[in-house]
Design a protein around this nucleic acid. Sequence first.
DNA 1: CAGTGAGCGAGCTTCCGCTTGACTT
Length: 770
Amino acid sequence: MGENLVIVESPAKAKTIEKFLGSSFTVKSSFGHIRDLSKKNLGIDIENGFEPDYLISDDKKKVVSELKSLAKKAETVWLASDEDREGEAIAWHLFKTLELKPEKTKRIVFHEITKEAILHAIENPRAIDMNLVMAQQARRVLDRLVGFELSPVLWKKVRPKLSAGRVQSVALRLIVERERDIQQFAAKSQFKIEGVFNPEGQAKTVKVTAEISERFDNEDTALEILKSCNGAQFNIGNIEEKESKRTPPAPFTTSTLQQEASRKLGFSLSQTMRSAQNLYESGYITYMRTDSVNLSKMAIAAAKQVITDMYGKEYSKTRQYATKSKGAQEAHEAIRPSYMSNIEVDASPQDKRLYNLIWKRTLASQMSDATIQRTQITIVSPSVAQKFEATADRVTFDGFLKVYMESKDDDSNDDSPEMLLPALKEGQKMNSLVIKATEKFTQKPPRYTEASLVKKLEELGIGRPSTYAPTISTLSQRGYIVKDNRPGQERSYKEIVLEKNEITSAIKTEMWGVEKSKLFPEDIGIMVNDFLVDNFQTIIDYNFTAGIEEDFDLVAEGKLVWNTLISNFYKPFHLRVDETLSASRPTNAERVLGADTKTGKKVLVRIGRFGPLAQIGENDDPEKRFMSLAKGQLIETITLEEALRLFDLPRVVGTHNGEEIVCAIGRFGPYIRYKGSFISLGKENDPHTISLEKCITLIDEYTSKEAKKSIKSFAEDGIEILNGRFGAYIKKGKNNYKIPKGVEPESIDLEKAKEIIAKADTGSKTRKKK
DNA sequence: CAGTGAGCGAGCTTCCGCTTGACTT
């Protein structure tokens, strides 16, 4: 004991490695970085070659002192942090902080947690790579300079407590620019022509749907084509068969796991990462923050075994994947099950679903290509200039598709489901049943989801696996963006139908633009972004990170000195900061919408102390009025009518039992206020138009529900048994208590209630009494 | 929880990447 101390970054990793090494090795973890720049000030001595001032982080003091005492006793200390820029820096900080002796310290690295890999690493130690450490230092210092000089500019020019940084500001820009693309997008309508045919000689129920590949801008053109189809004789033109292959996707990285968990399981980034962390800590999967698609030899062999056993030899195909994303540092393996033979794991339902996804993806990555037979036919007529086309894909060998199919991001309404074609031959007569021209609208660019934003950031080489989720949550904490749902709107479209030699046309309606869990910019986010774009073009350029990464690489190769890089960046940057502070005045995105229809006063929208507002009357008007903008309204796009409508609320609908009924929209949507209680209106009732009768119905429903709420009351002890949203519960003062399973709420007497409360209170010692 | 819409002007806010708990609801 104590002869050898191995230090890794993660405690779960330490536990695993300890099992591989003999009893002469103690394996501990540093829990990531142990030192960082001072949080209180810049932590960088700019005058003195940008010398960083490192401090041991408060939450790491305990770990550091423990490691220090262990290191003192050890014969050899093995620094086994990850083999990337950050990992090398951790090793160096450990070396410095623990005051290790060079002759007693060894640096080792491994990319996979297998006994073979660890032992190999122990046999091949090296020295700490100071060039790599300095590349990390450059990264750290640059990020601090950007963040701590840019944010204060925002405090002065826009609003306090805001933030800007190399990563978050680009992420924000992507969202704001996408929103503008969407606002400026004008949908074009086009006509798509589709025909349903019955092959001659086959049952009437056999139908082949085919469409003209060309789209027609003009309704008249579409009508002309339909006319030409009227009474026309159709035949199969030609039949073409093609064979194609589909290859499985690579095993999961953090980014692709987040994307697929979002698309297939509907998980948010944080849900995915929490589940993955659980699975990792239980030893079910490999490390979940990785940019590598590499699988260990052991994992590949295990996958091969499972595939052969479950599906047969023809389904197995060994593949090595290479990472192609920008800036990947490949310190770990891909995210995979620790043991491929573990088809299921003992975990929460949510964690199980994620595990299942990882298992399938990993397995699929080692499976054969799928073979797909594509049949394309054309249906032609001598009297019709255009040809109808139909495509059917048939899977002739499923290969990896047996276990896994990757999902697509876009919500393009791909309304052509898999179609099977009946047996057909060239020249065969096809009876047209219906030919339909439908007006279709071009699709606006899609708003980002959390996951599709991560994908974009990764493509741009911005951010790292450990920061994708936190970056997006910072943007929402600052109020720059919201993840939200938005209802769709109705839109009418034209449909022209040729059926039984008759052409009819109709106007139909469809829902359009429904958004679920999408990222929307808020006014303050738009304002900050525009300010940064105007004044700090270079920093929030999409290629800034990519360019600076090349410089970090030069530092890592010893071809560039780290503080030369920083100095070159800082001089022009700091100048720009000073110029911006002195030159530009505070920004306020005030927009004048026009005149109030009633008073003729000026109507404007701007950002106030509590967020965006609409204002009637000039600033010096003592009778000026204010209203907050509603959810989903932006200063940039709100209309005069929409703004004026805000002032119609709160609205007195009438009186009931001598009490006023007032309608308004609050933080949680539209509501009625009546006798001091608030009753939600729900989605279906509009507070602007709801009738007095309807309000009274809602009030009656509410009061009868309230009446049923109380089951029992022990007034003198302040204890109540109530019916809540999730069933019955006990309430004492401000605290709520769960009723144990199997206990009938009606059967609880005062004594029993007190017992439940006492039990719960001792269970959580820190329960706040208030 | 369902509102607010500045003057007085202290002292504070903030970055990106590594890692887990320890806290609530």
